[in-house]
Structure formats: C-alpha cells, structure tokens
Design a protein around this nucleic acid. Structure first.
Length: 410
DNA sequence: ACGTCCCGCCATAAC
DNA sequence: GTTATGGCGGGACGT
C-alpha cells in the first residue's frame, strides 16, 4: 500500500543527505578567493535551514577546513588545513595516550567499579591499542560542569575523538558499534552505555557522512561480521605528494577525492580529484537538492501542530524577505533552488545571455510543490523575475514571453 | 525488521 | 530581552 505521506512527490532522502550537502558546501567555497563563510548566506545558497549548516561547519571546523571567526562567521581554510589539523589531533591523542592526565577534554577512566573496559577484539574488531591495552582510554569521559559536559558531547568534539580513534590506532576499520561505544557510551555507567550508544549513534552517522564526503573515511562493513564499519582513507602513510595519478584504494566514485596531499606527519588529506573536473553531482546540478521539499510528515491541510504551522509561515516570510533583499540589491532573485551553474554563467556572459539562460531555465523547470506556501513562494519569485526582466528590457530590449514562465504547479 | 539519518524542537549560550 | 548555537531523539526513508 502506498502511503501518500511517505512517498511525497519529488522527495528523495539522498538528495537531502548531510554528505551531499557537505559536497555542495565544498562546491560553494572550495575555490580561490574565498575568505569567509557566513552561515546565513550559506544556508540560503544551499537552500537548507541553518541547523544543517551547523552540523557541517562543526565537523569541518574539527578537521581544520573552517575556523570560527565570529558569530555567524567562519573563515575558510580549505583542504590545506586538514593535514595540520590531523597532525595536531594525532599529537594530542598520542600525548593523551602516553600521559592521560594531560587530557584536557577527558578524564581517565578508572575501572575501579569493575566495569568492563571496551575491548574491540571481543566485539569482532581488530583490537585498538588505545582501547584494549589498558583500563585507561583517551576517549573516556567524565563530565565536569554542565558547560563542559555539553561541549564534550558536541559534534565537533565527537568528530575529533572519532578521528583520533583512527590516528592513534593501527587499524583502519572500526565497526559502528565499537565507535559508538567508545565515543558515545557513558563509560562510567556501562549499564546505560549500550542504550546511550544506540540512541546517539545517529551523531556518528552525521559525522561519517561529512567525513565521507571529504573522502577521509568511507562507510564499509567488517569482512567477518558484516557489521557496518568505518574505514579511514585519509591516512595511509605513503607519501603521494601532489600526484594527480595517485592510486586510490578503490575506484573513485562520484564526489570522491584523490588522496594526494601528505603532511610531514604522514597524514594524508583528501582534496578534489581536479579543480577543473566537474563532480558528477556537483553543486547545483541537481536542482531538486536545493528545493525545500520536506520529508513527509503527514501534512494535513490543517496542521495539528500550531508551532509547525508557525515555522512554515516564518520560513515563507523569511524567504520572501530574502527575495526582497536580493531584489533590492541585485535586481534579481535566487530562491532556495538557486542553481550555481547559472550563477557562474552569469559571471561570464553578458546580460543578454543571462536573460536567455534564466528564461530557458524558468521554462524548463517547473517544480511541483505539495506545499501551497512553496508554490506561493515560487510564484513570488517568478513575479520578481518578471519585474527584473521588465527592468532589463527597459535598459536593453523588450522581454520575450515572460508570462510563459509563470506556469507553476502548486 | 532493521539500518540509516533527516528534521526540527527546544535547551542553552551568547549577545 | 533577543538571537545564535547545537544536543537530541522521533520517526520517515532505504535496504
């Protein structure tokens, strides 16, 4: 039986994945001349809510791709920041391993309560020295203040610990279960650890998706147990300095990177196969990705949750404000489905060409919205676009067949 | 059935 | 007070 709620027209989970969003994020900023990254700007360009941007920047910050400058603002460091960051993480992890008291973020786990230290070999993984060799672990937590506690549970900290896990161990694959247990379990309370891990393993997926899109790790399965696992790709210890032809461990898939940067610490970082080579699903090529098609919760015409209704209205209002701002400043409007490729053409070609491109795009792209608000929004954009055409025509030539672009499906 | 993880609520931090 | 941040887990989607 097909549930209309679960098969919303045009909704694809993959198109909304954090990994793809991260790829798009990189597509947006991973180029020369990028200095700062604004969260609002990013969110609107990628057509997602701010919340998702936080997820990405927190992970990227942890691996040195971004650095927080101020509220709402990050400085872009790019892939070149990864080796340094990984080196630091590795040193930090090694220091913590040899002298756990140095661990600023975590405290030594003392197994005095007879609680079972995590032993990866028991659970099917190759043993991780850091976890199995003693009762202490660099990844053991004992929360301090509420703020510390919050910070320690942050996605950023979790990312750093996750990466450390690979950097100081001599295995390159860690099962999801083990990673979750080590990183997320309340090690002082193993009775809750499993539940805790199970509940929070979602965070690992978030991190893994971002790191995967950076090609630092890949999701895989353990050969013996078939349990889901993560394999570290970013570290292989083999210098491949700046060789575009460096052999990857496996054929590169779409959006994957060539491992060809190696730091002095033996840390390899991912970078794009080639700056010029378009990725198969480069940002903006999949226009649906930037359309705010929500996963379907049963959206009845009368929303039973007033707060959600309010959110949608707020969203619409905010989109309209954005549109108006853009109208005011640039004379044209990009919505949540802003196609970057078009923007690039815009930069290269004259106004006339831009006009034609937009007209073609607008005619060919007729999104179908389940949501009346989105339909209205699109209508609003089309009207804004139309008025821009009129302005343009006054300055050059008369607009052609603009009304044809207003055939929207709502 | 279970693995994956999007989504957005809401607590907390920052201003 | 408002706004920014992000922990968290419900539940939808994918296999």
């Amino acid at each position: 039986m097909v549930d209309s709620g679960s098969l919303h027209y045009g909704y694809s989970r993959k198109q909304k994945s954090l990994g793809l969003l991260c790829t798009n994020f990189l597509g947006l900023y991973d180029r020369d001349g990028i200095d700062t990254v604004g969260l609002d700007d990013t969110a609107s360009k990628l057509g997602v809510e701010r919340r998702r941007i936080y997820d990405i920047v927190n992970v990227l910050e942890s691996i040195g791709v971004l650095a927080r400058k101020a509220k709402n603002r990050y400085s872009w460091i790019g892939h070149k920041g990864i080796p340094h960051s990984l080196r630091d993480l590795k040193e930090e992890a090694l220091n913590e391993k040899t002298n756990p008291s140095l661990n600023a973020e975590t405290e030594v786990f003392d197994s005095e309560e007879d609680e079972k230290p995590i032993n990866l070999s028991e659970s099917g993984s190759t043993a991780l020295p850091i976890a199995s060799s003693s009762s202490t672990s660099i990844l053991s937590f004992k929360p301090k203040t509420a703020t510390d506690q919050r910070r320690e549970k942050s996605l950023g900290q979790l990312t750093r610990n996750f990466v450390k896990l690979f950097l100081v161990s001599d295995v390159d694959t860690i099962s999801l279960d083990d990673a979750a247990s080590i990183l997320l379990g309340d090690i002082n309370n193993p009775s809750q650890m499993r539940n805790n891990s199970a509940a929070k393993v979602r965070r690992l997926y978030d991190i893994a998706n971002v790191l995967s899109s950076m090609n630092l790790i890949e999701k895989t399965h353990q050969s013996d147990t078939r349990k889901p696992a993560f394999r570290w790709l970013g570290f292989n210890g083999i210098p491949e300095k700046n060789t575009e032809v460096a052999m990857p461990a496996k054929p590169l898939g779409p959006n994957q990177f060539n491992r060809s940067d190696l730091s002095s610490s033996g840390v390899v970082c991912a970078r794009p196969l080639s700056p010029k080579q378009p990725m198969k699903r480069a940002f903006g090529t999949d226009i649906t990705n930037n359309v705010s098609i929500k996963r379907s919760k049963p959206v009845s015409s009368v929303d039973s949750k007033p707060s959600k209704m309010k959110t949608k209205l707020d969203e619409l209002t905010e989109c309209n404000r954005t549109a108006e701002r853009q109208l005011g400043s640039k004379g044209h409007v990009f919505g949540p489905f802003e196609p970057v490729k078009v923007i690039k053409q815009e930069e290269n070609n004259g106004v006339d060409k831009r006009h034609q491109d937009w007209e073609k795009w607008a005619v060919s792209f007729q999104p179908r919205y389940q949501n009346q608000a989105l339909g209205d929004l699109f209508q609003h954009y089309m009207e804004a676009w139309k008025s821009w055409c009129i302005e343009l025509a006054q300055g050059s030539r008369s607009p052609q067949e603009k009304t044809s672009t207003q055939q929207t499906h709502c």
